[in-house]
Design a protein around this nucleic acid. Sequence first.
DNA 1: AAACAAAGTTAGCCTCGCCTAACTTGCAGC
DNA 2: GCTGCAAGTTAGGCGAGGCTAACTTTGTTT
Lengths: 154, 154
Amino acid sequence: MQKSTPKRPASSAVEDYLERILELINTKGYARVVDIAESLSISQASVTNMVQRLDGDGLLKYEKYRGLVLTTAGEELARNITHRHHLLTDFLQLLGLDAQTIHHDVEGMEHHVSPATVHAIESLTAQLKRQPALLERVRSGAAPARVGRATTAL
Amino acid sequence: MQKSTPKRPASSAVEDYLERILELINTKGYARVVDIAESLSISQASVTNMVQRLDGDGLLKYEKYRGLVLTTAGEELARNITHRHHLLTDFLQLLGLDAQTIHHDVEGMEHHVSPATVHAIESLTAQLKRQPALLERVRSGAAPARVGRATTAL
DNA sequence: AAACAAAGTTAGCCTCGCCTAACTTGCAGC
DNA sequence: GCTGCAAGTTAGGCGAGGCTAACTTTGTTT
């Protein structure tokens, strides 16, 4: 008897795996251990291990040597994290950040943004897109009407 | 011989410790093991352990049973993470999120925001503060001119 | 069908960051 | 100056999530 559906909040690692698996399935039609390992830059052994855990947690269906498919729960989680990923990327792009910074920051932040914040940033992003002048000021680093720009904290 | 200054990027845990230590020093004038443990909701043993590591890494000066002080490097790091914390909190407050969500998300995100992004969000925050009407639309969840609000991803 | 390569798996190990239990140190109060 | 308690430390351990090395399975090639 494995620990099916203990409903732990899904760690960052778990979210990363699911996100990549969904991406692979969407682009190649399937997700092999070797592809997941490559995509996450970790060893095949680690992937096998995690995939077995995800099977036990009911997030995917896995048959030794044969492959895997996401369950409804797994796909939902994967879509959710993917959504956060895209949203944050879109948002940071709007602010004029470079691709590398965006990638790094999104990869780190995406696991910690709650639904309410997702919604707020979606709303903000939508508003910002209709304010090209404001965005231009943001991108040029304008911080008007302040005496010291404050690199200070506390 | 300990590993002094191998300059690893400072883990989230390390940043959390430094942030709390600085906060304690700023409010109580000192940071004892027991206070740090209380503040981070972890055991004293864990704190002792980490404090010894931080000493080895040159982020603070520590004398057994006697206490600790941040080094210049440690204080700089602490101020930096504190700054990110305040900035993100300020930003999310602007979006109208509730205190609990803000606390949770900031605690998670603050470790993953690079300098360029910090700067961009500072700039954005400054601009937003002069746009009460826009902020009102964000807070009320307005996402105009879209047919389906899209909970979809991919 | 035999052999070989690529993919997958298992076993054993490591680091990080936390824990508890047991011991030591420092400091008040008597 | 002894004693008792709070603070601090040490020892040993655990789970997550990585790793390498060695083995097995699959599938292709001849």
